[in-house]
């Protein structure tokens, strides 16, 4: 197929989901983000700890909105975030002087590492990027960033996913663990 012909697409888009799926996705995301945000803004507001980062919004799409996806399974959620966080912090420590380079290296390397470890989870790319472009508060965490917020919050969101997704009769989560 020629280069420009490929850009035409030509395939069919998948059908829209039912109303119940929409409601359950909303419920899952609401109760998944809530504890993480509450820890961040209420319980630990006056400390240096961070519990919520942008990539969890993306994870919520997958683990509450597309729960059958291989990208949304526990192995990918936990593995993708943790591996990407390690890479993000390491890249910032090594190349933090050149943010343009550190940013691109962090995301690209995170994707490669997630592929290689069968833990591809799109929000992982954001987790790696935030380690580089994040606030001073994030940078000060160093490798603790991998544990809190990334590890702990991913676990909280996973527990909520197990509870909410399996509460619904037509839903089952996860498809596989590891």
């Amino acid at each position: 197929m020629s280069f420009f012909n490929k850009m035409k697409g030509g395939g069919q888009s998948p059908p829209v989901v039912g109303l119940s799926e929409i409601l359950w996705s909303w419920l899952g995301a609401f109760f998944g983000i809530m504890p993480v945000a509450f820890l961040n803004y209420n319980l630990f507001a006056d400390t240096d700890l961070v519990f919520i980062i942008g990539s969890f919004g993306a994870s919520a799409v997958l683990i509450y909105g597309a729960i059958k996806s291989p990208l949304a399974q526990p192995r990918n959620l936990l593995g993708g975030h943790i591996i990407s966080a390690i890479i993000g912090v390491a890249v910032f420590k090594l190349f933090g002087g050149h943010l343009w380079l550190a940013s691109s290296l962090a995301v690209a390397t995170a994707i490669a590492a997630m592929h290689a470890t069968k833990t591809l989870h799109p929000p992982g790319g954001a987790t790696a990027l935030i380690a580089v472009i994040g606030s001073q508060k994030i940078h000060d965490l160093g490798f603790y960033y991998v544990l809190v917020p990334v590890g702990v919050s991913a676990c909280i969101m996973l527990i909520v996913a197990l509870l909410v997704n399996n509460f619904c009769k037509t839903r089952k989560y996860p498809e596989f663990w590891f």
Binding site: G11, Q12, P14, P15, E21, K68, S69, T170, R171
Partner: peptide, 21 residues
């Protein structure tokens, strides 16, 4: 056919992370 696949996908309540093709 593509139509067969779309019909089958509609019967599954969850969002399927795959295109018909």
């Amino acid at each position: 056919s593509n139509e067969d696949i779309i019909q089958a996908m509609k019967k599954i309540p969850g969002y399927l992370d795959i295109t018909p093709s």
